[in-house]
Structure formats: structure tokens, C-alpha cells
Write a protein that binds this DNA or RNA. Structure first.
Length: 935
RNA sequence: GCAGGGGUGGCAGAGCCUGGUCAAAUGCGCUAGGUUGAGGGCCUAGUCCCUUAGUGGGUGCGAGGGUUCAAAUCCCUUCCCCUGCACCA
């Protein structure tokens, strides 16, 4: 028999589905609907194995829900908004070797790559490729509704503009300024992914405190402004260049390097003159809060990379200051008079905390690298638990943590300080330019920080089903944590902000409620662009206004409105766990802002990542695997099954080629089995048939429960691997001939349970076993609770246990070829006793139970034997079988099983009752555990 | 640091909510036997330690402590791992 070609099978059925349009979903009056979506992929490359997983979960769920009788809509679109595609096109234009090789590795020819200098070519190429890849995997998508974002799709842009007008009406679109990490060469904000160094660095707030010295200010940068009360001197690096500059009308002394930073942060700076640090020493500067005069000393640890190059010295609390002061005292005796001033009292530290850690860490000088660690420890402790001392005036008695914000506000209000955002570690843009912090003006925000919006979103979350539920805590936290989000940029592709055409809506912000667009995507194509406007969307999505104000074809408009109200809300939206704190949270927020409560999200699914050989997939490591390559290496069904059988909930999937090979084998075997056995067998029905049907129903029940929770690995475990295992036992028990009905049922049910996972093979089998329908549109099998009979299972496992025991004894007896195996069934009083203990073991224990048992006539009759047995059972209730059979039933069952046992052991098997046996070992017989005598 | 999720046998991974039936499902791997063209696949048995013509004992679910007649499961402490901490796909 030639091996089934799984890839050809996939092609064949995809064609059939397409021709019959079974996945094109339209509203059906009265039929329950289920709307499933997945975040559209960004089309700057081929879809990879990570997409495969995240897209396969909704796909399998869609097929399952369809089989459960729902009218399922599963649409798919493509995302091109943002900067990466544009940036890639620019690199192609510049013939950047790295970018070109990325495309070469994907198999593009030079002339094709050359065309990627137009970002639109990139978008079109990869959107098309993505759709093909997904279709090749048999996704049950309604492709009529597909679309793409950006001005390639002006209707979508209109939709996004409508969305933003709604957000503005609701008061959630605000304007303000904020600090960003900025590259002055690229003239844009530099996110983590666009950095060659400094991932995770973000602007941190420092306080610039002004110490007046004559007619200039020495401006110190600090992240611990509360210690200003303990300043003993200032530090200047003698070898560094400083400027005297007019800053916002005052004369400041800061490092030359600081000028650019100040300018980027909204300060007017005019340099008056330049000095080396050494020229600035020994002046006296006035502490603005204590009004005391402090000297300016030299220190080499001072840099201008962070802050201003002017540092206030707090030797009591800053180990670096303490170290520098100790160093300086050796050079200048006048410094000896300086004593540290303690500002913060912290449990476990004495008069000069910095000195203590200085000693403990064994620090030797101001250039000791251990200073960093010492500083971190002390700052941490003092920040969380340190109490401010009376020297701090109104702040005394409170912790640093509580006071800090107020203190900074006070300093700024009294014009003794200003705030500077600073990068604590270097950040370098991919273009190799060192980044700095810039305050961006007139920035547009979505006000996720607003309390009323948060409250609404919490409510939406409460109403939303989560798969798995355990992500709820994280969502709750994220909703509280989100601050206002800068939602527009001046670069990249996308839709212009309607209120301010200078700005383009950023990519995460234009993809929050587009699920609504799926409802109308195929209709709105037929509306002339000029007629696509806010009035239309108001009517379709919100039922606002009347048709009178709408120019578009009214029938079409009404159809769109009906589609939307039919399909919405989204019942299941699935995504990777990394999107919880941005996309999925935004999705919830925006729905509450735009739509009425009945249209808020009904279900969200979250899954883990895919790793390859336990390694996180990344382009730099070269371990990226594209969806299309997987399909080539295996077949769609095998990939689908393998990726879903490997993990569930938030666990990461590890793609495993060995598992794929094994699954491929299993599918072929299953197909072969169905071909060989469907409609064959006898008409004999035994308890073993009833047992198998019972197990089958159990499996169906458990698989169904798992499917409902999108626990697909569990569903495959119960619905495939377990079913197969049970049939193996059935086949063994029944021997050569099986019941025709049982086998048919097995094949039918098994095929349908597998259909959502491996639909192509299942269609093939379904057709070949003479079904007239498509497996994809069949009804999911439901468990018949009445067919589930635990007592049969208990008896079968008892038999399996007996087989086990016989093997063990056979081994121990060293009789390799026994001629006879005798099984002795325990006397009935033992069954009686077992049942008794089983019923009482939960309520009574130990002696009590023995006492109670002795009131029972049958048990009492067996005296000490009975007591010993009870005590054994109490100690280990696991000995009691799930079902305790009477002797006669157990005897009969084993007698019936003799052919099977003979077959298994290849010798004569006899079954006797305990009291009929002369063997001394016969007494060892217990209910469910016959005594075994091998000869 | 903050927030969320985890730590189970050679490996992967159930069990934990609702304590006893847990030496702990299932799969992989490994060992032996069978089938077969010595391969692959398939079938059977074994796979923590000790003991044994048997169903006995010990150790054990990151570490330590507690609650309980009884803990992988409940409580406390502690260590370790993963993910995220943003202006962006």
C-alpha cells in the first residue's frame, strides 16, 4: 500500500473548502455566533513559527466552535503601520549589506530586493506571502474580509480617524510634553529595539539644585535631593571642561557636555565663557536650603555623562563622596575640619552610614569599582526604610520614599531646583549616535492614566473571559500601571491624526478596535471613498444618526450595521503573552471608550512563546524558522498537531522535530487503521466493548472540557493519545476479532475529535469511510454520560493489575515456561470486610474502626485475621480497589478472561475459589488481588 | 527593585484549587524479549533504592520549618528560574 501523501491531501481539501466557501461566514438569524480574531501580523518578513502557534490556537478553536454548532467568523488582516518597514526600505535604498542579506536569506533575487526600496512593495510582498502561508496551513479564515493598514487602504484610515474622533469626544486624546530617548542624527525617539546599546534604559528624573556663589549658580545634579541637607562641599572635576552659561536668564556653571542636554529639555542656553574645572575650585557656594556656605573641591570620580559635572557632596550618605573626601583630606588639610552631616536615620546604621559600608566593602579609594555596589545597597535601604532627621525641617520623621516627591516639588517651586531627565547608562542608536533625553512638545497622548477610563476598563476586564484565567492578575495590574501613551509620531507609515495632520498615529494605537472593521471590510470596499466618513461609521458601529445624512447606498449601510451588531463583541481574541501589557490592554481600553458595554470584549486568550531547541527565537541567533519552511519539511497537519501538543496556557512551546516525525507517523497509521478496519468485525458484544465505549465517552468528555478552555494539549492528550491507548487494550482483550459497531464508533469519534487539529487527514478519512459530509462541518461528538461506567473500568484495571502481578511472580519464580497458572479468588468475607472499611475509613480511624467492625457478625467470625486485615487497610487505603466485587462476580469475571490470560501468558490458566483450594498460598488472596500459583 | 508566572522522577509534563485511592498519569529516552529483510515501524515487559514466588520496607515532588492521624497538595520563611517594566512591533 503506497504511503499517504499528507501534503497532497492538504492541498486537495483546501481546494474543496475554498470551492464550497465553508469558512465564509455571514450573519444567520437565530444561529449563535462566535467571533474569533488574532492580532494581525506585521508584514516586514515571512511569518515564522511564533506566528504559527499564536494563529493556530484561534484556528483550532474556530474549527471546534464551528463543530459545536456556532456560526464562526475568523477573519485575518495584515499590519504595516509604523517605522520598521519604512526603515528597511531606506536601508535597501542605501544598499545596506545586512538588510539585503536578510532578504537574500529569505530567497529573494537581487532585482526583487531592489524593489524593496519602496516600502509599499515590502508590504504587498509579505502580506501576500503571509496570506498564502496561512491558507496553506488550512486556516479556516473568511478571506473576503482581509485588509491591510496604512494609506494603502484609505478606507481603513478613515475608520481609524473615526476612532480617534471618538476618543477625542470622550476626552481621552490629550496633548502634552514628555521625555524620550532621542537620537539627534535620526531625529527620532529611539525605542529599545532600535538601539545597539542601552536596552531597557529610560529617562530617569534627576534634580538640579542650584548653589549660589557670587553671581553664578553651581548647579548640582542628584537623584537624592533629600540629602541636600547634608551637603558639606561640592565636587568639580579639575580636568573637565565647564561653561558659564546663561540658562533661562540665570548664570549657571555646568559641564560643557551638559549644555546640549539642557537645550534638549526646553532650556534656553547661551554660553558665556568656558573654564577648566581647576579654575573653579575653592569658591564658596551657598546651600539653598540650609543657607550655609560650602567649599568647592576637586574630585576625579565626577563625570559629565550623567548630570552636570557638578556634584553635591554628602559624605554621610554617599560612599563615593565619603571616599573622595578621605582622598582629598590627604592633600588639603583644610578639608579635615569637614564632618559628615547625617540626614537620614536607618535601622542598622550609625552616625556615618557611608563610612560603614565603605569599610564593610573594603573600599580603598574614590576609583574603587566596589563603590557602585556599596552605593546601591545603602541607597536602597535608606530609600525604603530611612527616616528623615530634624535637620530636614518640615520633612522630619517621615521616610525618604514618602517625602521625595513633595521635596522635589518644593525645591522646584521655590526656584532652588529644576528637573532634568537623564540616562543613567549610555544608550547608543543603531546609527551609532549616542542618545540623550529630549522633551518632546505637543505630543498627543491617549490618556490611559485617567482614573475614569481605568475604572471602565477594569469593568470590561471583569466581564471578559480569560484563557487561561490566571492572566487576570497581570491584566489588573497592567490596567492600573498604564500611563498616558504617546500615540502619534512624525515618522513612519500609517494614518494621520485627524485633529493634527502633522502627526501619524503610531502602530499600537491604530490597532485596538479594528476587529469591528472585519464586520464590514468586504462591504465597505463597495462604498466610494468619498462616502466613507464619520457619519457612516457612527451609524454602522454606534447606531447614531440616521440614514438621511449618509450618501452611501443605504442597503449596503444597513447590511454593514447588521453585520456589526450580529458579530460583535469578539468572543475570543488570542495573542502571545508579551502583548498583555500593551496591545491587549489597549484593546480593552479603547473598546470601553468607543463602544457601549454590550460590545466590550467577551474573551481573550494568551499563550507562551515558541522556542527552538530550548532557545528563544531571534534573528541575531539565526534560529528563525518560517512557517513556509515548516510546511515544506512536514505537512500542515503535522505542524498543527505538533505545535499544539507541546504546550498550553502560558508555557513556552519548544518546537521539536522528533515529535513532528512521530506525529507524522501516528497520523499515517491512523489513516491506515481506518482504511483497514472500517466496517469490518463481528457482531459479538462483550463487557469489553462496553468498557471501551465507556472509556471513549470519558475521553470525549474530558477532551471537550479542555477544548472549551483552549487547553489544546490536554484535548489532544485525552482526545487522541488516550483514546488510542484504550483501543489498544480493547484490541488485546478482544483478541483477533472486534465488534464492527465498536470499531466504527471508534473511527468516527476519533476522526471528529482530531478534525480541528488535523483537518486535512480527517477529511480524507471521512470521505474514504463513505461519509457524505465534510468533517469540518460535522458535529463535534458529545459524551454520553450514561455510557460511562466506572465499575467496568475498575474491573478492567483489576485485570491489568493481575496480569502485572502474574508477570512479577513469574519472574521471581524463575519458571520461564510455566505450564499452569492458578488464580485463587478471595473468600466473600474479605469482600465484605473491604467494603466495610471502604465505607467507614473516612469517618472512623484506627481502633475505633476495628471496634465498629467487630460489631459486624461476618467480620467478627474471622477474629484476628480480620483485625490484621483492617489494620493493613487503614494504614494504606490504597489497597482497596475502586470497586469491590463479590467473590462470585470476581470468579466469573476471571473465568471469562481465561482466553485472554492464556493468550497473554502462553499456558494453561485455571481460576478457583479460595475455599476450594488446598494451596497454602491461597490464603493470600484479597479482593481484586487473586493469589497466584505458578507451576 | 516592582509586577506576573514557575521549580515534580534521565527528559518533557500531569497532579496542587477541593490533603488520604501518589513511587506519582501520559509521552519520550533507556534495557530486555517478540515480529521483521539484523534497519525503521509495531507488539510485550522493565526502568528511585533495598528485599521477596509476590502484593514488604526505605527515600522522594527546589530548601527549611509548621499544621494534621495523614502533605507533591494547606500555612510561614528562604533560594533559584522565566516574562514584562513601554512610546513599539
Amino acid at each position: 500500500m503506497p504511503k499517504l501523501n499528507l501534503k497532497a491531501v492538504a492541498k486537495r481539501w483546501q481546494k474543496v473548502w475554498k470551492e464550497r466557501r465553508i469558512f465564509e461566514a455571514d450573519p444567520v438569524e437565530g444561529k449563535p455566533k462566535f467571533f474569533i480574531t488574532v492580532p494581525y501580523p506585521y508584514v516586514n518578513a515571512y511569518l515564522h513559527i511564533g506566528h504559527t502557534y499564536t494563529d493556530m490556537r484561534p484556528e483550532v478553536f474556530a474549527r471546534y466552535k464551528r463543530m459545536r454548532g456556532f456560526n464562526v467568523l475568523f477573519p485575518f488582516a495584515f499590519h504595516a503601520t509604523g517605522t520598521p518597514i519604512e526603515a528597511a526600505a531606506k536601508l535597501v535604498l542605501e544598499s545596506d549589506a545586512k538588510q539585503v542579506s536578510i532578504y537574500k536569506d529569505m530567497g529573494f533575487k537581487d532585482e526583487e530586493i531592489a524593489k524593496f526600496k519602496d516600502p509599499k512593495t515590502i508590504i504587498k510582498t509579505f502580506a501576500k506571502a503571509a496570506q498564502k502561508d496561512l491558507a496553506d496551513f488550512g486556516l479556516s479564515v473568511d478571506w473576503r474580509r482581509s485588509f491591510i493598514t496604512t494609506d494603502l487602504n484609505p478606507r481603513y484610515s478613515k475608520f481609524i480617524q473615526w476612532q480617534f474622533s471618538k476618543l477625542q469626544e470622550a476626552g481621552y486624546l490629550t496633548k502634552g510634553s514628555h521625555p524620550v530617548v532621542w537620537c539627534s542624527k535620526d531625529n527620532m525617539a529611539v525605542g529599545d529595539h532600535a538601539r545597539s546599546e542601552g536596552e531597557g534604559e529610560m529617562p530617569e528624573e534627576m534634580t538640579l539644585i542650584k548653589f549660589k556663589a557670587d553671581d553664578v549658580f553651581f548647579v548640582c545634579a542628584t537623584s537624592r535631593p533629600e540629602t541636600v541637607f547634608g551637603v558639606t562641599n561640592l565636587w568639580i572635576n579639575p580636568e573637565l571642561a565647564y561653561v558659564e552659561a546663561l540658562v533661562d536668564g540665570e548664570t549657571w556653571v555646568v559641564a560643557e557636555e551638559t549644555v546640549a542636554k539642557l537645550e534638549a529639555q526646553k532650556h534656553k542656553v547661551q554660553v558665556v565663557e568656558t573654564h577648566m574645572g581647576i579654575e573653579l575650585l575653592r569658591k564658596h557656594a551657598h546651600n539653598p536650603v540650609t543657607n550655609s556656605a560650602v567649599p568647592v573641591f576637586p574630585a576625579l570620580f565626577v563625570t559629565a555623562h550623567t548630570g552636570t559635572g557638578v556634584v553635591m557632596s554628602v559624605p554621610a550618605h554617599a560612599p563615593a563622596d565619603f571616599a573622595a573626601l578621605e582622598d582629598y583630606k590627604k592633600e588639603d588639610a583644610s578639608a579635615n575640619s569637614i564632618t559628615p552631616v547625617k540626614v537620614v536615620a536607618t535601622a542598622g546604621y550609625g552616625a556615618v552610614p557611608a563610612a560603614e559600608v565603605f569599610k564593610r566593602f573594603g573600599i580603598t579609594s574614590q576609583s574603587d569599582p566596589k563603590l557602585h555596589e556599596a552605593t546601591a545597597e545603602l541607597y536602597g535601604k535608606e530609600f525604603h526604610t530611612g527616616i528623615l532627621l530634624p535637620v530636614t525641617g518640615k520633612y522630619q520623621g517621615r521616610t525618604v520614599q514618602l517625602v521625595k516627591k513633595e521635596l522635589i516639588n518644593d525645591l522646584v517651586a521655590s526656584r532652588h531646583a529644576v528637573v532634568l531627565y537623564e540616562l543613567m547608562n549610555p544608550v547608543v542608536c543603531r546609527c551609532r549616535t549616542r542618545c540623550h533625553v529630549k522633551i518632546v512638545d505637543n505630543q498627543w497622548f491617549l490618556a490611559y492614566g485617567k482614573t475614569d477610563w481605568k475604572e471602565k476598563t477594569h469593568k470590561a476586564l471583569a466581564q471578559c473571559k480569560l484563557y487561561p484565567e490566571k492572566v487576570r492578575a497581570q491584566f489588573t495590574h497592567v490596567i492600573d500601571w498604564l500611563k498616558d501613551w504617546a500615540c502619534a509620531r512624525q515618522l513612519g507609515m500609517g494614518t494621520r491624526l485627524p485633529v493634527d495632520k502633522e502627526w501619524i498615529i503610531e502602530s499600537l494605537s491604530d490597532s485596538t478596535i479594528y476587529n469591528a472593521y472585519y464586520a464590514i471590510a468586504h462591504h465597505v470596499k463597495n462604498v466610494p471613498l468619498s462616502q466613507v466618513n464619520n457619519a457612516l461609521f457612527d451609524y454602522v458601529f454606534l447606531g447614531r444618526g440616521s440614514l438621511d445624512g449618509i450618501k452611501a447606498d443605504h442597503n449596503l449601510v444597513m447590511q454593514m450595521e447588521q453585520e456589526f451588531t450580529y458579530w460583535y463583541p469578539v468572543d475570543f481574541r488570542n495573542s502571545g503573552k508579551d502583548l498583555v501589557q500593551n496591545h491587549l490592554a489597549f484593546y480593552l481600553f479603547n473598546h470601553t471608550a468607543v463602544f457601549p458595554e454590550k460590545h466590550w470584549p467577551a474573551g481573550i486568550g494568551v499563550n507562551g512563546y515558541v522556542t527552538l531547541n530550548q532557545q528563544k527565537m531571534s534573528k541575531s541567533k539565526g534560529n528563525v524558522r518560517f512557517m513556509r519552511d515548516l510546511a515544506k519539511a512536514w505537512s500542515p497537519d503535522v505542524v498543527r498537531m505538533t505545535i499544539l501538543a507541546n504546550a498550553e496556557e502560558l508555557d513556552d512551546v519548544d518546537w521539536d522535530d522528533d515529535a513532528a516525525a512521530s506525529n507524522s507517523q501516528k497520523l499515517l497509521q491512523w489513516h491506515q487503521f481506518a482504511m483497514d478496519n472500517y466496517g469490518k468485525g463481528d457482531s459479538v458484544k462483550t463487557d469489553v466493548d462496553a468498557w471501551f465505549v465507556s472509556k471513549l465517552n470519558e475521553c470525549v468528555r474530558d477532551a471537550t472540557a479542555a477544548m472549551d478552555l483552549t487547553l489544546f494539549r490536554t484535548a489532544l492528550q485525552c482526545g487522541f493519545f488516550d483514546v488510542q491507548r484504550h483501543f489498544k487494550w480493547y484490541a488485546r482483550r478482544r483478541g483477533k476479532s472486534w465488534n464492527v459497531e465498536t470499531v466504527k464508533l471508534f473511527i468516527d469519534v476519533q476522526t471528529l475529535l482530531l478534525a480541528p487539529f488535523v483537518p486535512h487527514v480527517c477529511e480524507e478519512i471521512w470521505m474514504k469511510v463513505q461519509k457524505q459530509t465534510l468533517a469540518s462541518t460535522e458535529h463535534w461528538p458529545l459524551a454520553d454520560e450514561n455510557a460511562i461506567r466506572p465499575e467496568l473500568d475498575a474491573i478492567e484495571s483489576g485485570l491489568a493489575q493481575t496480569v502485572d502481578d502474574v508477570s512479577t511472580v513469574k519472574e521471581l519464580s524463575k519458571i520461564s515456561m510455566p505450564r499452569n497458572i492458578m488464580l485463587v479468588v478471595a473468600d466473600d468475607w474479605k469482600s465484605h470486610l473491604f467494603s466495610f472499611v471502604k465505607n467507614h475509613v473516612k469517618s472512623a480511624r484506627g481502633q475505633d474502626l476495628v471496634k465498629t467492625a467487630m460489631q459486624d457478625a461476618v467480620i467478627r467470625e474471622h477474629g484476628s485475621d480480620a483485625v490484621a486485615l483492617i489494620q493493613r487497610l487503614v494504614k494504606d487505603p490504597g489497597r482497596i480497589p475502586a470497586v469491590v466485587l463479590h467473590q462470585e462476580a470476581a470468579f466469573q469475571f476471571l473465568k471469562d478472561s481465561i482466553p485472554f490470560l492464556k493468550d497473554t501468558f502462553g499456558c494453561e490458566v485455571v481460576v478457583v475459589k479460595e475455599r476450594d483450594s488446598q494451596e497454602p498460598k491461597a490464603k493470600q488472596a484479597l479482593p481484586g488481588k487473586p493469589a497466584i500459583i505458578i507451576s
